[in-house]
Simulated assay, not measured.
Amino acid sequence: MRVAILAPVRLLGDGLARCLDGTSAIRIIGVVRTLEELHELVSSSLIDVALIDMTQPIDLDAVRLLAISGSNVVLIAMGLKEQRQDIIRCGRAGFVGYVSRDSTVEELAKTMLDAVAGRLACPEEISGALLRALFRQTSDPAPDGAPLTKRESDVLQLIGHGMTNKEIARELGLSVATVKHHVHNVLEKLSLPRRSHAMRKVREKPWLLG
Rank of each mutant, 00 (worst) to 15 (best):
R194V: 13
L65T: 11
D154P: 00
A146G: 06
A50P: 01
V63G: 03
M54G: 00
S153F: 08
L134C: 09
T104H: 05
L209S: 12
G210R: 14
S103T: 02
I28G: 10
D21R: 12
H161Y: 15
V179S: 01
E152T: 03
A62S: 11
L65F: 07
Q85L: 12
T149R: 13
R194I: 13
P8Q: 02
L11D: 15
Y98G: 09
L11H: 03
M78T: 09
R200N: 02
M112P: 04
Q137I: 11
L38A: 08
F135P: 01
D14G: 12
K180C: 00
L187D: 02
L113T: 10
A77S: 03
L75E: 02
P57F: 04
N185L: 12
T138W: 02
T23G: 01
G118A: 05
V63Q: 13
V186C: 11
A67K: 01
D102H: 11
V49L: 04
K150T: 15
T111R: 09
T34E: 09
H182Q: 14
V3Q: 00
L41G: 11
I68C: 06
L192C: 07
M163A: 04
T55I: 08
L80I: 10
A133I: 05
V49H: 01
S69V: 05
G160K: 06
R27Y: 06
R101I: 07
R151P: 00
D86P: 00
D154Q: 14
M199A: 10
A115I: 08
V96S: 14
D140T: 11
R2A: 08
G210V: 08
T149C: 13
G128C: 08
L41E: 09
R170N: 09
M199I: 04
R200H: 06
A62P: 09
R136Q: 15
K166M: 13
G145R: 03
T138Q: 10
M199H: 04
L16H: 07
N72Q: 14
D59E: 13
D14V: 15
V186H: 01
V32G: 05
T104C: 08
G15M: 01
I29W: 02
Q56P: 02
I26K: 03
I88Q: 10
P141W: 01
E37T: 08
S43A: 15
R27D: 13
G30E: 04
P8E: 01
P193H: 09
P147V: 09
L75R: 06
R33F: 15
V116C: 07
G128V: 03
I26G: 05
S153L: 09
Y98A: 12
L130A: 02
R203S: 12
D86Q: 15
R27F: 07
L148A: 07
L113W: 07
Q85Y: 00
A133F: 04
A25Y: 11
R170H: 09
